[in-house]
Amino acid sequence: MSNLFVKDIVVSYSGLPIIDRLNISIPDHKITTIIGPNGCGKSTLLKTIARILKTDRGAVFLDGKAIQQLSTKKVAKRMAILPQSSEVPPGLTIFELVSYGRFPHQRGLGTLKLEDLKQIDWAIQVTGLSELKDRPVVALSGGQRQRVWIAMALAQDTDILILDEPTTYLDLAHQLDILLLLEKLNKEEERTIIMVLHDLNLASRFSHNMIAMKEGSIVAEGPPSKVMTSSTIQKVFDIDANLTICPFSTNPILHSYQLSGCTQDLLENANEG
C-alpha cells in the first residue's frame, strides 16, 4: 500500500456531487498525472487529496491516517500544493514569497533560521531564479512566476508535490522547462509528484502513472502505455486519436486527433483533395 491513497470519496461542490465513490492509490516516488475533459473533477480530486476540499464521505489517507484528522501543519510538512493561477500581492519579492514556504516549519512570529535560509536559497537556485531573487514577483513573466511558486513549494521541503495545471498559459519551451524541473526533482530526490495536465502528450512523456477521469470517475489508470490507448481516449475525451510513439520517452503520444464521428468524412475529403 502506498503512503497516499483515496478511499471511497464523495465530494460535492455547492450541493452538486462532482466525485462519486472514487478509489485511487498514488504510487510513492513516482510522477502521477491526472487527465480528463473540462469539468470531469480532476481538479476537485487534486484539491481533495491536498485537503483543500472536504469529502462528504470516504477519506484521503496519508501514512494510514485520514488526512483531515491529521494536524494540518504536519500535513504541510509532507505535501506542498501549487494551486491553479495564484495572484501575487504586488511588492512581494521572489525571496519573500519563497520564504513563506517555510511557514509550516516555523513557530511564533516566524523569524527565518539558518536552516530555513538554506532551504529557501536551494529552492531559488534549482528553479534558476538566483539572479532575480530581489525582484518583485509581479514584474516577472508567466514562466518565471510559475517557477517562483514551485520554488515556494520546494522551500516547504515535502516529499509530495501537488500541482494543478502547472504549465497552463506557458509557451512550449516554458512548459518543458517546468516539466523537466519536476522530472529532475523526482529522479534525484525521489519526490512524489501529482499533477493535472491538459496536454496529453506531455502527460504521457513525463509520467510514470496516469489517471484518466470522466464525469467524476476513473476510466483508466496505470502507466502511459496502458492509459494512452485510442479506446481510452475515445471514452474520456470523445475523440478519435491516431497514436504514435514519442521518440524522447518511448511512451505513446497523439499523432493527430479528431472529434468522434467525423473521422470517416474527413479522411475521404483529405484523400480526394
Binding site: 500544493i81 494551486p83 495564484s86 500581492p89 514569497l97 514556504g101 511557514f103 509550516p104
Partner: peptide, 24 residues
Amino acid sequence: AMFFSKSITIISLGEEIAIGLGQR
C-alpha cells in the same frame, strides 16, 4: 493582531495557498 501578523501575511496569499502551508 501582532500575534497573528505572520498568519495575516500567509492568508493574504490566498486561501488555498494558506491551507497548503498548513494554516488553519
